[in-house]
Simulated scan of single mutants.
Amino acid sequence: MSGALCPGSFDPVTKGHVNIFERVAAQFDTVVVTVVVNPNKRGMFTIEERIALIEEATAHLPNVRVASWQGLLVDFARQESLTAIVKGLRGMVDYDYEEQMANLNRSMTGVETLFMPADPSLSFVSSSYVKEIATHGGDVSGWVSPNVLTALQERIASPATGG
């Protein structure tokens, strides 16, 4: 049985992320979308909220589950018996950073990292841009699922509850 790990902060999950999850789910028996916990970063959404948003956005993918992890990603991959880490890339800047991480991960544990190019129609979408545009009243409905749009609107109206 093959399994892949799709890690990220997903604050919030976008249609670009979901597109990658869908494509990975078509290639692997099991996909674990992993919200990576960084105690040094405060997100707009808590880890639990991000997990819930991703679960709803991926409900149509029966072989996808969502988890969180704090620590070395390769340790999580080994613990879950996942054979690959899959990273979506929007361009060369993403590649330059991710290639170094992939080589480190393979060197430490033998876990391979596979790169999947972003869908060109979504390659400019990032969680950071979505949050910034939404915070300033812009329309991000084309880049996030309806559940994420609602959560963004609610969080912007009441920002003190973020994580």
Results as ranks from 00 to 15, higher is better:
residue 5 L to T: 07
residue 15 K to S: 02
residue 151 A to S: 11
residue 144 V to A: 05
residue 29 D to H: 10
residue 152 L to F: 04
residue 55 E to L: 05
residue 112 E to G: 06
residue 15 K to H: 08
residue 26 A to D: 03
residue 110 G to R: 11
residue 53 L to S: 04
residue 162 G to F: 09
residue 130 V to H: 15
residue 89 L to T: 06
residue 155 R to N: 05
residue 21 F to P: 03
residue 127 S to K: 00
residue 68 S to L: 02
residue 39 P to E: 07
residue 1 M to E: 09
residue 55 E to R: 08
residue 29 D to P: 03
residue 157 A to D: 10
residue 119 D to P: 06
residue 131 K to C: 01
residue 103 N to R: 15
residue 95 Y to M: 12
residue 129 Y to K: 11
residue 7 P to V: 00
residue 142 G to Q: 15
residue 11 D to Y: 00
residue 132 E to S: 07
residue 16 G to N: 01
residue 133 I to G: 06
residue 102 A to G: 02
residue 19 N to R: 11
residue 58 T to N: 04
residue 98 E to K: 05
residue 156 I to L: 12
residue 155 R to E: 10
residue 23 R to P: 03
residue 79 Q to E: 13
residue 118 A to H: 01
residue 73 L to T: 09
residue 98 E to L: 15
residue 88 G to K: 05
residue 87 K to I: 10
residue 18 V to M: 06
residue 116 M to V: 10
residue 13 V to G: 02
residue 34 T to P: 03
residue 105 N to G: 09
residue 150 T to P: 05
residue 136 H to Q: 13
residue 153 Q to G: 10
residue 32 V to H: 09
residue 90 R to M: 12
residue 122 L to N: 03
residue 66 V to Q: 05
residue 132 E to M: 14
residue 51 I to H: 10
residue 134 A to F: 01
residue 154 E to P: 07
residue 84 A to E: 11
residue 71 G to S: 05
residue 109 T to P: 03
residue 32 V to R: 12
residue 80 E to L: 09
residue 89 L to R: 08
residue 90 R to A: 14
residue 144 V to K: 00
residue 157 A to F: 04
residue 35 V to I: 15
residue 40 N to F: 15
residue 47 I to N: 01
residue 59 A to G: 13
residue 97 Y to L: 08
residue 104 L to T: 14
residue 119 D to K: 05
residue 75 D to F: 10
residue 78 R to M: 12
residue 145 S to F: 08
residue 90 R to D: 11
residue 70 Q to T: 09
residue 132 E to C: 03
residue 103 N to Y: 15
residue 42 R to H: 14
residue 61 L to E: 00
residue 67 A to R: 04
residue 96 D to P: 08
residue 94 D to I: 06
residue 28 F to T: 00
residue 34 T to L: 12
residue 86 V to F: 08
residue 150 T to L: 14
residue 121 S to M: 15
residue 160 A to I: 08
residue 46 T to F: 04
residue 28 F to P: 00
residue 73 L to W: 10
residue 48 E to C: 02
residue 100 Q to W: 07
residue 145 S to L: 14
residue 151 A to I: 04
residue 49 E to N: 01
residue 107 S to Y: 15
residue 131 K to L: 04
residue 162 G to R: 11
residue 86 V to P: 07
residue 41 K to C: 01
residue 68 S to V: 06
residue 94 D to C: 10
residue 63 N to V: 01
residue 154 E to W: 09
residue 21 F to C: 04
residue 32 V to D: 12
residue 163 G to R: 12
residue 120 P to N: 10
residue 125 V to T: 06
residue 3 G to C: 13
residue 128 S to W: 12
residue 8 G to K: 03
residue 102 A to I: 08
residue 10 F to S: 08
residue 72 L to W: 11
residue 37 V to S: 00
residue 143 W to E: 01
residue 105 N to K: 04
residue 127 S to C: 08
residue 79 Q to F: 14
residue 56 E to H: 10
residue 136 H to K: 12
residue 116 M to S: 12
residue 84 A to L: 03
residue 64 V to C: 06
residue 56 E to C: 11
residue 109 T to S: 13
residue 52 A to G: 14
residue 27 Q to D: 11
residue 147 N to G: 08
residue 104 L to M: 14
residue 27 Q to K: 14
